[in-house]
Amino acid sequence: MSARTAARDAEFTAYLQARQARLLRTAYLLTGDKHQAEDVLQTSLAKLYLAWDKVRDRDSVDAYVRRIMVNENNSLWRRGWRKREFTTEVLPEAPVTDTYDEGLGAALWSVVQSLPPKARAVVVLRYYEQLTEAETADLLGISVGTVKSQCSRAIATMRDRFPADLDPREQEEER
């Protein structure tokens, strides 16, 4: 292995150690499935590794790999990944009602999971990654207006789908 390759690998290893867990969490929120998230993450990291010489000197490595993850997830979705079924010896978990919020959290998560991949990417980047509307638009290659409308639509969907007794406003009032 050349000294240059060794140096590149050392840099990349440091990046892996520092950022991988965070990226896995984002991938999980994008995909809604841990195995799928790991697959998206591994492919995205591989693509990042291949382009490392080009992006490592920039401050935008996280944005670069986030963009790859979003595209990978959209690609998986287009390829019908979600139609696959896997056999397992472990019984699926029963629906969980979160005790901390009397089921509101699970209901919110359900809504997020039901969003189309691109809309969910907007929600994850805005509300989990805390990117600005402009940053989200830039990363996804869409307009700020589209980010705003996707977010508004997601929030409107939540309003529509929530039973009144799960509406946080109602909960606040009851308290």
Binding site: Q20, L24, R25, V123
Partner: peptide, 29 residues
């Protein structure tokens, strides 16, 4: 609503502290 979604996403992802892939695995892919 946005604040609530942010909290929920954070809680959903909480605990995923794994670093499942080594450099060799990434290079293999």
């Amino acid at each position: 609503w946005e604040s609530r979604v942010s909290r929920e996403l954070g809680q959903r992802a909480q605990g995923l502290d794994e670093t499942p892939f080594s450099l060799d695995q990434v290079k293999g892919r």
